[in-house]
Structures are given as C-alpha cells and as structure tokens.
Design a protein around this nucleic acid. Structure first.
Length: 580
DNA sequence: TTGCAGTCAATATC
DNA sequence: GATATTGACTGCAA
C-alpha cells in the first residue's frame, strides 16, 4: 500500500522528511542497479536511515553513484523515530560488515576502479593517485559516508596507527637479525604513504595530519568523513594488512621494472622514486620550470604573525596588507597563513579536547596547572585576549581542562618557553585587552624599525640560519611599553618585541605569546620583561604545565575566534546557534 | 568576498 | 626512508 501510494503520488523532495526520503534513495539505488543482496540487512529496520546530509547523498546519487547501500543507522540527533533499534556502534558494525561481505573493502589493485570507469570520482579530482577503494566506487563510499552513523574518529585513527606501526614493528623486529633483511625492512613496512595512496586516496602528508589530528565526527564535512569511513572499512577487513603488503610488493615490482627499462637515459632525470611515473607521463617540462619555490617563513616572521594573530585573529585586509608589507611577504601569504593557523589551532583544540575528555577528570582537579588556571579565574579570559567575560564559552573549554592527557598532538618540546608562558600568563592575569587594531599597528611600526637593519629579506626559499639575524634584531627592539603606558604600547611590545622572538621554533609554536596582548594594566611591561627572563632561564618547567599551557593557548585562540564570530553576528543582529 | 575544510606537495625532522 | 610540518590551492557556503 505504501509503495503504491508512493509510486503514484510521490512528494517533492523538498517536502519530504528524512525518513520520507529514504524510500526514494532506495529506489534510486535500485535504479542504478546497485542494490545488492545487502539492501536490507537482516536486522531489518532499514528505516532508521538518517542521512547526515541528505543533499550530499542526493548529489552523489545523481552522479550515478550507487552501491551496496543501506545500513540501518541511527542518529540520535536527527532521527526522532523510535524505530532504529540499533545502537550507534552496532550500526557501524553493520555498516562495515555490509560493505565487506559483497565486496571487500580493500581492493588492492590500483586499477581497481576500472570497472566503473564511467564515474568521475569526485574526490580525486586532480589527484594522480589512483583512488583505491575498489570494490566500491568512490561514490559508493560517499554514500556510505552520508549514511554512516557517528564514528569515533579518534579511535579509528588510533587503531589505524596501531596497525600500521605494529606492522612496522613486526617487520623490523623480525628482521633485525639479518642484515639483508633489515635493509628491506623499510620497504616492508606499512607506511603512511602506501596506506594513504592505497586505502584513502590521500598523500602521505595528509595521512599524517589526519592520523595525528583527527577531527571529531560531528565537525567533519561529508568529504572529511570519507577517509574515516575508509579507515573503518579497512580496519574491519581481516586481510587488510596482507592486502597492503601485497600492494607494496606489487609496487616494488613495478618500480623495479620501470627502473630496469629506463636504464638508458634515466640518468639525467633520475628522480625515479616510486610513484613518479604518472608525473612524467602527463606532461614534459613546462610545468617543471614554472614551479614556484615554496615559501618558508622565517621564525621571526612566524612570531610576528602569531603575535598579530593574538591580537586579531581576523585581521582586516588593510591590516593584512600592512603585515605583508612590514614582513616583506606577499599578502596572499599572510592571508594563507592566517587561514591555516586558524584552522590548525582549531583542530589542535579538538583533539586536545578529545584527549582530555578521555582522561579521567579526577586528576585534573589537583594538578598544579589546573589549580593555577582555576585559581586565576580570569586567566583563561586573559589568554584569549580579553575575553574574560566569556560566560558561555567558558563552558566548553573548561571541561577538558585535564592536564593529564598525553599530548600526542602537542608535540610540545618547548619546555622552557612554555613554562615561561605559564608564568607569564599568571603574571599577566587580570590584564585584558579590548583594543586591538591600534596596538597592532604600533607593533608593526616596531617591526619597521627592525626592518631597517635587516629586513626579513626572506628569500622565502628556506628559512636558514640567516633568519637568526633578523630574529636578533627583533629581539633587540626596544621595549616600547613603558610602565604606565596605555595598553597600546604594551600591546605593541607583545606583537613584535616578542618575548620569544629568539625562541627555538618549536617552542614558539606552542607558546602563544598570549596575553601580553594588551594588558591595560600598568604593570604590563614589567610583566613582559619577566616573561622574557623566564623564557631565557626557567628551564625547569614541568611537562604537565607545558601541556596545560599549550592547551590554554589553544583555548585562547579558539576564544578569539568565538569572539570574532560573536562580534560579527552581533553586528548582523542575527540569531545564531552557537556551538562552542 | 570572506572564511573554511580538505588536500597537495615541498620541505623539515626524526 | 618514514613521518611531521606547513604554505598554497580548490571548492564550497554564507
């Protein structure tokens, strides 16, 4: 009866609820000929199918995608329906099982996509890397992604890392004895590159990033979820490792073959690392020469940018322009830097929270750092550039306050600097900034001074030790913040004089040069000085504090973002639901 | 137009 | 050689 009704009187898509759309999706899949035996899993109840993003699914369907679909799944958020009886984890399981049965998740062959040649794998666009995901087309994966229940991204990456590294270990240890074997060991290891290219269709760098800093599922776009679904599928494949190893072997074979065949003239253009052949096949030299050298920002430049960020995470075009001029960078570089920095800070925060969340809150309460940060009730606010009035935002960041988590993400090595930061932060408690631009501009002026001597001529090629020079000049800038001076001067110091301008890169990374931001407080400059000295001398910081500080820094950055958005929203007077 | 997510790929680091 | 970092780019959405 329902079918009849639906067939004769279909509602327009826009009028359908998510549940109502489900049958149409199924029909579409069926029309695409991809409905296999797995259409309706035994568990019955295909309904719970809640699409995280119906539109995206629709898109993929329109592109002709299809595949083993369906998976009952529930999304607490969007499925009010009582019907989906499955728990989230069950759903995941069934999802992956489903995909696995008919067509193993990992089709090792790189040509795996041959069968469905027609489809234009949206995701691989320009990528020359063969998109792995075989038995299923890339699109079917999209579909799975759309229908997938919430996955534990952190857990998934953790497991993937384990599998990969375990594998490395196995090989390395088992081969340790033999010299010859050891020589081969690296080749036999399951590396990120192989995994990325074969399983995820991503490059090594992306994989590394993904594994190290997974975003929580709910923060991911459909596209962003795809690698996690792939990983989940891979993890569920009992033969995953072997298949990957096979891949490895095949790759190696191919490589050897290539090498042998190109003995003659290969010498000149030797760059024959595995996986290169596509680049040469595509086009000859022209691009080769057009390649522009990669910009590498000198540490001082980064410092300056960070300080600018502390003051204004969302600089105006004018500010960007100025910054670019002062630093002798292209505006696009500055823009990119801000974009990248914002998003990376955000991501770090995510995982910090995840990690913190997974730690027992118990320990957090009496850790010194926690104590201090709590005692200094306003310190959080400070660190976020005068966001002390962050009533609501407070809620979230404070939760994961735990100081205990292992900071896998926080590659924090900047012990001294960070401890300094902590001290500095405390010293600056109560300081607060409300003004932004002016101080920032002042800062730029200071920088100008710097430039006079040794402008960061930054060849933008590599940031060699030469950069030290400019770093020094920055460092030696006169501290323009005079005691009783208004916030502006204090701020200017913070932006440029940078307590940390001479800090090693790593530490500077973690240290937020935070608060000096704008302390309106008279004591500002003195405090800044104390920070400076701390930077130089207090080597004895505990790693706990270190982590705590890095977390704070990130929170600060995050709060900055929040503020910015709030301001924006306020100016627009629009109602916004905030998710902090 | 702006900001962001996701990614690549060059380079740095381990 | 494997992995991590990071500037740049693309595509999308508001």
């Amino acid at each position: 009866g329902s079918v009849s009704d639906m067939l004769s009187r279909p509602k327009p898509w826009s009028k359908l609820t998510q549940k109502g759309r489900e049958p149409f999706i199924r029909m579409q899949l069926w029309l695409n000929g991809e409905l296999g035996q797995c259409v309706l899993p035994a568990q019955g109840q295909q309904q719970g199918q809640v699409l995280h993003s119906v539109t995206s699914l629709q898109d993929s369907l329109q592109q002709g995608c299809a595949s083993s679909e369906s998976t009952p799944k529930t999304s607490a958020s969007c499925s009010p329906a009582p019907e989906s009886p499955m728990s989230s984890s069950e759903s995941v399981k069934s999802l992956t099982e489903l995909v696995q049965q008919p067509c193993p998740a990992i089709e090792t062959s790189k040509d795996g996509k041959s069968q469905e040649s027609s489809e234009p794998p949206a995701s691989e666009s320009q990528s020359t890397t063969p998109l792995p995901l075989s038995g299923h087309s890339a699109l079917s994966i999209q579909e799975l992604v759309a229908m997938s229940p919430e996955l534990d991204t952190y857990g998934i990456t953790k497991r993937v890392k384990e599998v990969l590294t375990d594998n490395n270990l196995v090989w390395l240890t088992s081969l340790k004895s033999s010299r010859r074997a050891r020589k081969c060991a690296p080749n036999s290891a399951l590396g990120q590159r192989l995994f990325g290219e074969t399983i995820l269709g991503l490059t090594q760098g992306s994989v590394s990033d993904l594994l190290a800093r997974p975003k929580p599922w709910h923060k991911l776009s459909l596209k962003g979820r795809e690698p996690f679904v792939r990983m989940q599928l891979w993890l569920n494949d009992p033969n995953n490792v072997e298949k990957l190893m096979d891949m490895k072997r095949m790759e190696k074979k191919a490589y050897m073959k290539r090498r042998h065949s190109s003995v003659s003239d290969s010498q000149s253009c030797e760059s024959s690392s595995a996986g290169i052949d596509y680049s040469q096949g595509a086009s000859p030299q022209p691009q080769h020469q057009l390649k522009k050298p990669r910009v590498v920002l000198a540490p001082e430049e980064k410092e300056a940018l960070k300080r600018a960020y502390q003051q204004k995470p969302y600089p105006s075009p004018k500010t960007i322009e100025e910054l670019a001029t002062q630093l002798n960078l292209k505006t696009s570089t500055v823009i990119n830097w801000f974009h990248n920095y914002r998003s990376r800070i955000r991501r770090e925060l995510f995982i910090e929270e995840i990690q913190a969340g997974s730690q027992s809150q118990a320990g957090a309460s009496d850790s010194p750092s926690a104590r201090s940060s709590r005692a200094a009730h306003s310190s959080e606010g400070d660190s976020c550039d005068g966001v002390d009035a962050e009533g609501p935002p407070e809620g979230k960041p404070s939760g994961p306050e735990a100081d205990e988590y292992s900071n896998a993400t926080t590659k924090s090595q900047g012990g001294p600097a960070e401890s300094a930061f902590e001290a500095g932060e405390e010293a600056l408690q109560g300081a607060r900034s409300s003004e932004k631009t002016e101080s920032f501009h002042l800062g730029m002026e200071s920088l100008e001074d710097t430039d006079d001597e040794g402008r960061l001529k930054a060849p933008r090629q590599s940031s060699p030790p030469g950069s030290q020079r400019s770093g020094e000049s920055l460092e030696t800038l006169p501290n323009s913040a005079t005691d009783g001076d208004a916030s502006t001067s204090a701020a200017s110091t913070s932006v440029l004089t940078g307590e940390s301008s001479y800090k090693p890169k790593e530490s500077s990374e973690k240290i937020p040069s935070v608060p000096s931001t704008s302390s309106t407080v008279a004591a500002g400059s003195q405090k800044a000085n104390s920070i400076q000295s701390l930077f130089s001398f207090s080597e004895a910081a505990s790693s706990k504090n270190t982590r705590d500080n890095s977390l704070r820094k990130k929170k600060a950055a995050n709060l900055n973002n929040i503020i910015h958005r709030l301001e924006k929203a306020a100016s627009r007077e629009e109602a916004v639901e905030w998710e902090f």
